[in-house]
């Protein structure tokens, strides 16, 4: 069984993450993933799978194994330093009423 399973997985085309810019001026956004033998096939497959209705003007593909993600279990400590710095927000500062636009 283990052998079988390894065999199956070994033959699988690699997994790619697909990022799409929906129109000029916007960021690329994660759309999903797909399998392809190489980067060119990944882009062509991404066109067929994720942009059948002109959802994109530009496609990025990244092999999934190169994505590194933060650990949700550590989000408390990871984001903690940002928590107590409310002076980073404009609402922290009180302005006299006379100042109309700032």
């Amino acid at each position: 069984m283990t052998n079988d399973k390894m065999n199956i997985t070994k033959n699988e085309w690699p997994l790619w993450e697909v990022f799409i810019r929906s129109k000029a001026g916007l960021d690329h956004k994660h759309a999903g993933s797909l399998h392809a033998a190489d980067e060119q096939m990944a882009i062509e497959n991404a066109r067929d799978v994720y942009t059948r209705r002109m959802e994109g003007v530009s496609i990025w593909v990244v092999e999934s194994k190169y994505i590194h993600a933060s650990d949700p279990g550590e989000s408390a400590s990871l984001y903690d330093p940002a928590n107590d710095k409310i002076y980073r927000h404009p609402t922290f500062y009180e302005l006299p009423d006379e100042v109309k636009y700032m």
Partner: peptide, 23 residues
């Protein structure tokens, strides 16, 4: 062709749970 796309969206969603496409 859309239905093929739907299958592919869903297979890749399932893969995020730790099962491979081939399985």
């Amino acid at each position: 062709q859309d239905e093929a796309g739907h299958g592919l969206y869903l297979y890749s969603a399932a893969e995020t749970l730790g099962i491979t496409r081939d399985e």
